[in-house]
Amino acid sequence: MLRVIVRRLLQLVVTLIALSALIFIWLRNLPGGPVEALLGERATPERRVLLTKALGYDQPILVQYGKFMQRVVTGDFGNSIRTGDPVTEVISRAFPATIELALAAMIIAVGLGVPLGYLAARWRGRSLDNLTIAGTLLGISIPIFFLGYLLKDVFTQNIHWFPPSGRLTTGLDNTHVTGFFVLDGLLTREFDASADALWHLILPAITLATIPLAVIVRITRASVLDVLNEDYVRTAEAKGLRHRTIRGRHILRNALLPVVTTIGLQTGALLSGAVLTEKVYNWGGLGTLITDSITGGRDYPVLQAIILLAALVFVVVNLLVDLSYAFIDPRVRVR
């Protein structure tokens, strides 16, 4: 087990180093070169010279890369061109919003997807199964920003069930503790703020959940179908175990293993989807930050940090999932 962990960590480090090298190359090849990309077009010549010196761009390429890595490791990404605020500050404001949205979407996708996939497999070929498969195909084929607008139109314009955008009703002042608004409200006992945040969260979370939901339903279904054919299920039936025991211990537990891994893989889909969903609902998380950083004059210091952060999150989540997989499934541990 320990060997697996160590090897996976080493692979993770290699991947991250390769990624940072790519970002370094990316930054150097941006229009106008790295200094202009980091300072913006309107910077004075003196500042350019200063930054060129500070970043070491007048030195050999390996030294430049070394300095770049040093800044990455210490989390020093400079200041945003657009607002002038330190990049780390800008990102730490937006990060909890995206995580809150992504977590809510994942809860919906898993909470709905696993039972649906299981039922579809159990009643294979019946109408629920066919309907579920048709639904998942549609879910994969629909542009999710369009779905977002559709939901927004129906549930905020036609019937006023949910608020159209933002994370909180304006005027409602909540205390920020963690940046997760629903959690903040519970921690500070501002339950009205918590409820309001949750109310704002529902539509965007449903929109974002579409693709992971479709994928999880399909994986669960295929996985349950496979397990149903296993010898040990037949054995369990033959020795007269109760159906509930067979379903819980033999079928679901084994069928869920691949689902756990899928959850890790869907982190990528969630981060991609968040960019689109946040724009539809004006959410103000990392996705909004990316869009603003590109369309409002290219804010490369911010972009660079977000890209690294997104890759880090994705890789670390997948590492955790793989490790938990090795933990859940004894067969992986033995080898």
Binding site: Q11, T15, A222, L257, L265, L319, R331
Partner: peptide
């Protein structure tokens, strides 16, 4: 869609990489 997404509960360690193993 039932043809893909094959679950492999006994997946060998060989195929465990940094990400996207499935």
């Amino acid at each position: 869609g039932s043809g893909d997404d094959k679950p492999r509960p006994g997946m060998s360690e060989r195929s465990i990489g940094v990400l996207g193993d499935r």
